[in-house]
């Protein structure tokens, strides 16, 4: 028991590395917010483009979405971080993590929002078009608002899942929570920084999870 406490809850180590973990928490929060905003915006935009049913647009979107949903994000992160410099593209580890996770989230978000668009009754399109609204206005003001409300639960689940993947940044040296914790762990030869990291993740993501429940309830269809 003593060994366990010393290894996971060592007071001296905890005190020493708490500031570092807090710094990492800042990076994790910043990354998460940027990824969720950019990923959902990009995914929604792609789903809207697909609604025009122009094969030259839809086909590349579908191929992109399938590839990025099929590959493990870690593979993409490593490919981008260690592969791109060989073709002359030098990106910081932060940028690589942001780009890849945004593209992965966008791929899922595109499929989710697309499902919402196709699930919106045909009569909504017909009613709007019969009043002279253009296709684009109908999509933006009649169909998309309904589609997004419908897909809030899967979208928030996916957003939470992707923000937890910021921890993958550790393997390419992003100074996020886990990155700082593993660094501290090797310096201190003690696992307590990882305990700190776990606590930090819970403190950060639990409100996020609770907020998503509120969001789902707020936009639930009446009677549900």
């Amino acid at each position: 028991m003593e060994v366990f406490l010393d290894q996971f809850l060592n007071p001296a180590v905890l005190a020493k590395y708490t500031p570092l973990i807090l710094k990492g928490a800042g990076v994790t929060v910043l990354l998460s917010v940027l990824i969720v905003l950019a990923g959902i915006a990009l995914g929604t935009a792609l789903a809207c483009l697909r609604a025009y049913r122009i094969a030259a647009l839809s086909l590349p979107i579908v191929i992109y979405a399938d590839i990025f949903r099929a590959l493990p994000p870690l593979v993409l992160i490593l490919l981008a971080y260690f592969g791109l410099p060989n073709v002359g593209v030098l990106l910081s580890s932060f940028t690589v993590l942001f780009l890849i996770l945004t593209l992965v989230l966008a791929a899922f978000a595109e499929e989710i929002v697309w499902a919402g668009i196709t699930a919106t009754p045909k009569g909504q399109w017909e009613a709007a078009r019969s009043t002279g609204l253009t296709f684009t206005w109908t999509l933006g003001h009649v169909v998309l608002p309904q589609a997004l409300r419908m897909v809030i639960p899967p979208l928030t689940n996916r957003a939470i899942a992707i923000t937890k993947m910021t921890a993958l940044g550790m393997v390419i040296g992003v100074p996020d929570i886990l990155g700082q914790a593993t660094t501290a762990q090797s310096f201190s030869a003690n696992a307590s920084p990882l305990t700190l990291a776990a606590v930090a993740y819970v403190i950060l993501f639990l409100p996020f999870v609770i907020a998503s429940r509120w969001l789902e309830a707020r936009f639930a269809p009446p009677g549900a």
């Binding site: 017909e126 009613a127 002279g132 609204l133 253009t134 608002p145």
Partner: peptide, 20 residues
């Protein structure tokens, strides 16, 4: 077509009101 459709009102069996 969009201009002409403003001159033709349509009422549907299933109402098709915008729920939002």
């Amino acid at each position: 077509l969009n201009r002409m459709r403003q001159r033709i009102g349509m009422v549907f069996q299933s109402f098709n009101l915008y729920p939002h």
